[in-house]
Computed example of a mutant assay.
Amino acid sequence: MKKTWFITGTSRGIGLEIAQAALASGDNVVATARNITSLREQFSEDQKTQLECLELDVNNPVQANIAVNRAVERFGNIDILVNNAGFGQLGHFETVELSAIEQQFSTNVFGLMQVTRAVLVVMRKQQCGHILNMSSIGGALGFDGAAVYCAAKFAVEGFSESLALEVARFGINVTIVEPGFFRTDFLDPTSVRYGNIKLHDYEKIATAQKMQFDDYSHVQPGDPKRLAQLIVDTAGKGAAPLRLIAGTDSLAMSRETLNNRIKELELWAKVSVTTDHRET
């Protein structure tokens, strides 16, 4: 049965690959991005019967509502929402200006929430739907030199896990996608941002980390096309995972983090139980 996808951040990278994979499967796609001209250039003429390209800055709630209404006008429903729009803010916490932190949360967290709020009106009416929120392995564990980015992705994960409980009663599933490092332009200067506060204590390690990321750009192990196909094969299929880990690197790091967390939990368990009220 043909489904309708609503995807944010589709002008390039993983978002574009998901849109192309959904179109190839025969589904309808509402592709959104801030720059409508560059967005339209990514698709061919023969795809337009299944495709609606819309301008959407996720930071603009008015645009989000307009885009959702247009999607319903065109295709009648929205079966799958993919919240993909976002960018990476790297750099040690003290080197990142407050305005940059606010922009990171505005796009990666509050923008995601605004689009979700607009789409939920449709999905609740339908009594069905599937929301996929693009997180990161940086939403499952912290990274040295990525405090702000990880904080935003942790927020997405907490929001998504709680939202899943809230909307299950309406037949709506929520999946958190946790990719590892994928071969996109995420680490390119056109996408990723670094802290611009110069602090001598961080200078040496910050320079080394940036060089490492620059060298890793476009040689990451993850294949965006394969990730897109996994999402298309998983979305809207009834039983869906709360977390969809993508990539051998993400899987290995997730396992190590969970194992270490369990070890620490057990190590401190005797202390943890001492805080309860006790009857005298």
Rank of each mutant, 00 (worst) to 15 (best):
Q42H: 14
F43S: 11
F43K: 15
F43T: 14
F43W: 11
S44Q: 15
S44C: 07
S44W: 09
E45R: 12
E45C: 01
E45M: 02
E45P: 07
E45V: 11
D46M: 12
D46I: 10
D46C: 09
D46E: 15
D46S: 15
Q47I: 11
Q47V: 01
K48W: 13
T49V: 12
T49A: 15
T49R: 09
T49L: 04
T49N: 15
Q50T: 01
Q50E: 07
Q50V: 06
Q50W: 00
Q50R: 15
Q50N: 14
Q50F: 01
L51H: 05
L51C: 09
E52W: 09
C53T: 12
C53Q: 06
C53F: 11
C53A: 12
L54D: 09
L54C: 00
L54M: 10
L54K: 10
E55H: 07
E55T: 12
E55K: 10
L56N: 05
L56P: 06
L56S: 08
L56C: 10
L56E: 04
L56F: 02
L56M: 06
D57P: 01
D57I: 02
D57K: 08
D57T: 05
D57L: 04
V58F: 01
V58I: 13
V58A: 00
V58M: 10
V58P: 00
N59S: 14
N59M: 12
N59T: 15
N59P: 00
N60C: 01
N60A: 08
N60E: 03
P61F: 03
P61Q: 08
P61D: 10
V62T: 11
V62I: 15
V62F: 13
V62C: 08
V62S: 13
V62D: 12
Q63M: 13
Q63W: 09
Q63Y: 04
Q63N: 07
Q63E: 12
A64V: 02
A64G: 07
A64F: 00
A64M: 00
A64E: 02
N65S: 13
N65W: 13
N65E: 13
I66F: 13
I66P: 04
A67Y: 00
A67R: 05
V68E: 07
V68H: 02
V68F: 02
N69A: 13
N69V: 03
N69L: 06
N69C: 10
N69R: 13
N69H: 07
N69I: 02
N69K: 14
R70W: 01
R70V: 03
R70Y: 00
R70L: 10
A71F: 01
A71D: 02
A71N: 06
A71C: 00
V72Y: 06
V72L: 06
V72A: 04
V72R: 10
E73F: 03
E73I: 00
E73N: 11
E73Y: 00
R74C: 08
R74W: 08
F75C: 05
F75P: 07
F75G: 02
G76V: 03
G76I: 00
N77P: 01
N77T: 12
N77L: 04
N77R: 14
N77I: 02
N77D: 08
I78V: 15
I78M: 05
I78Q: 08
I78K: 14
I78R: 07
I78C: 09
D79W: 10
D79H: 05
I80W: 03
I80P: 06
L81K: 06
L81Y: 01
L81N: 05
